[in-house]
Amino acid sequence: MSHNTEVLDQKTLWGGGRSPFNVSYGKLMIWFFLISDALTFSGLLCSYGFMRHKFSDTWPSANDVFVHFPFMGDAHVPLLYVGLMTFILILSSVTMVLAVEAGHRRNKKEVQIWLALTIVGGFFFLFSQVWEWAHFIHGTEAGAIKDIIVDGEWVTQVVHGANLHHNEYGNVLFGDFFFFITGFHGFHVFSGVVINIIILIKVMKGHMDKTGHYEMVEKTGLYWHFVDLVWVFVFTFFYLV
C-alpha cells in the first residue's frame, strides 16, 4: 500500500535514512515475528507428518473421528463441522481486512464495526473448538478395546474418547498432536481476540486519530490473517488428507 514506491531512487535505497523495504519499523518487525511463528507451526506439522507416516498402519482417519454436528444427534456427518469452523475463520478474516481498509480511509466508525465483528467471529471459532475437543475427549459410547498403561502396568480394557494417554480411534500420537497443534493454534486465536479487543478500545478512545494513522489495526490484522493461514494448513493436514 506504500504510495511512494515510484519515487524511490534505487541507488540510495540502502544508503541509510530510509527503510529499504519502504515499510515502517513496526510492520517489518511483525512480519519477522510471523515468519518465526510460521516456522514453529511448520515444525509441529512436519513432526506430525513424520509420525503419521511412521505409524501409517494405526493412524486414524479424521473422517471416522470428527463426525458430529450440533443439533444433529448421532448423525454421521464428517468434515461438515470443521468446514463450518473454517468458514467462520475466513469470514472473520474478511471483516478484519475490511477494518484495515476502513483504517486507510481514516473512517473510525467503520473500523469499529468491522473490528467488533472480527472479535465476534474469533469467539465463535473458539467455542466451536471447545465443542470439537469435548466430543473428541468423550468419544463414542461403545468405545474400543486398547492396551493402555495403568499404574505402570499394561492392561487391556475398553477406552472411550481420547486424551494424552489413550485414544479410542487409533494411535495415541494422533490425539497428542491434535491437542497440541489445535490447542496451540486456539491459543493464537485467543491472543488474537485479546489483541483485537485492546485495539478496538484504543480506536474507540481516539488514539488513532491522535497519531494520524490506523497502522496498529493493520499490524493486528497481519497477526489475525496469520492465524487464519495456520488454520488453512491445520484443516488440510488434520481433517482432509
Binding site: 506504500s2 504510495h3 535514512g17 515499510v23 513496526g26 510492520k27 481498509e101 476502513a102 480511509r105 494513522h213
Partner: peptide, 17 residues
Amino acid sequence: DDIIEYSLDISHTDEEG
C-alpha cells in the same frame, strides 16, 4: 525528524476504497 513516517503514507480515498 530523521525518521520518515511511512505509516502516514498508507491511505486511500473513498473511490479507491
